[in-house]
Simulated scan of single mutants.
Amino acid sequence: MQQRPLGRTGRDVSAIGLGTWQLGADWGAVSEEDATAVLAASADQGVTLFDTADVYGDGRSESIIGHFLAGRPDHGITVATKMGRRLAQEPENYSPENFRAWTDRSRRNLGVETLDLVQLHCPPSAVIEADETYDALDALVADGTIAAYGVSVETTAQALAAIARPNVTNVQIIFNPFRLKPLDEVLPAASAAGVAIFARVPLASGLLSGKYTASTTFAENDHRTYNRQGEAFDRGETFSGVDFSIGVDAANELAAALPDGVALPAATLAWIASQRGVTSVIPGARNVRQAVSNADAAALLDGGFDVDAFDRVVREVYDRDLREAIHPQW
């Protein structure tokens, strides 16, 4: 597994990480035993980045990770958590007092004195642009509450605003073959600034697994059922904002362009990880099979897969079927 610098922290993280939203909530039920097995399988495959948040299962994801890592004292894993969605997404709620309360809660959940990396969890643009935001975060670094901080964003404009801040370690943004806008400015700006990029929703909520049909359904408590039009949170977090039926057809076309023996999810993760400026891709996994498959995609980065040929098909499909609807929004 390739290991890459995490901004200016002096840490390295794996090119393929693990997103753990699904271990908390909103993807159907995942038992604690299965969640722990996913963490173990990922770590055993060389994954050294776990991404979580304080609201994933109201702290369940953080707590499961903390318990797992306590049993592996020499784990070498960086835990990137997020904060800011425990209250309404209003600028006045992003106060030093709330930052303190949220990070203290995450420290307890994870069982650590200092959090490796804390990311603001898709806050309003006004928060990302405010000097006071970074003053409060710098204070948490200064007193040892957190080691580093970053910002998870919805839009490219928000990403660019965060990248411009001198102490931002990373920006987390949706980037996949159905969401190409970050290629225009975000990845070049991050690379130039030494800011790490975490590519989230890399498989477009499973659309890029290539396993769905137009008739596929999901559990009632799965955001792929209840958030297709942005009813609960930003629409772009579900299927990357792509209409489900259009996404199914686009995924099938991408899969048909791949050589025998290369699956669409692996090709997608390798394609994302190969883009200059991307530090780590953070797919989720609900079971061990998915965790191992995600990590194995890193092998394609070492040869045997024509990334350039796949890139041409990705851009052709995006430009023809998706750009008009997706590019202007995020």
Rank of each mutant, 00 (worst) to 15 (best):
R4D: 07
R8H: 13
R11G: 02
A15C: 14
I16C: 00
G24C: 03
A25W: 15
W27A: 09
A29V: 15
S31P: 05
E33H: 14
A35D: 01
A41P: 02
A43T: 07
T48Y: 10
D54E: 14
V55K: 08
S61D: 03
E62F: 04
F68C: 07
A70P: 02
G71W: 05
P73M: 02
H75F: 09
I77V: 07
T81C: 02
K82C: 02
M83D: 10
M83R: 10
P91S: 03
S95E: 03
S95H: 05
E97A: 12
E97N: 08
R100V: 07
R105H: 10
S106C: 09
L115E: 04
L117I: 01
V118Q: 00
C122R: 12
P123W: 10
P124A: 12
A130W: 00
Y134A: 05
D135P: 02
A139S: 11
L140K: 13
L140C: 09
G144A: 10
T145K: 14
A147R: 15
Y149G: 00
S152M: 00
E154Q: 13
A164T: 08
N167H: 15
N167W: 09
I174T: 14
F175W: 01
L180G: 05
E185Q: 13
L187A: 03
L187W: 07
P188I: 06
A189T: 03
A192G: 15
A192W: 13
A193E: 08
P202F: 04
S205T: 06
S209Q: 13
Y212T: 01
F218P: 00
N221Q: 10
T225Y: 08
T225E: 14
R228Q: 13
Q229W: 09
Q229V: 15
A232S: 13
F233S: 06
G236L: 08
T238V: 07
V242K: 06
F244R: 08
S245C: 15
I246C: 14
A250W: 12
N252W: 09
L254V: 09
A255E: 11
L264M: 08
L264Q: 06
P265A: 03
T268E: 13
W271R: 00
A273V: 06
S274N: 12
S274L: 11
Q275K: 13
Q275G: 04
G277E: 09
G277Q: 03
I282H: 02
G284R: 09
V288Q: 03
V288W: 02
R289T: 15
A291C: 04
S293L: 14
L301R: 03
G304M: 07
F305Q: 06
D306R: 05
V317T: 12
D321E: 13
L322A: 01
A325C: 13
A325R: 15
I326S: 03
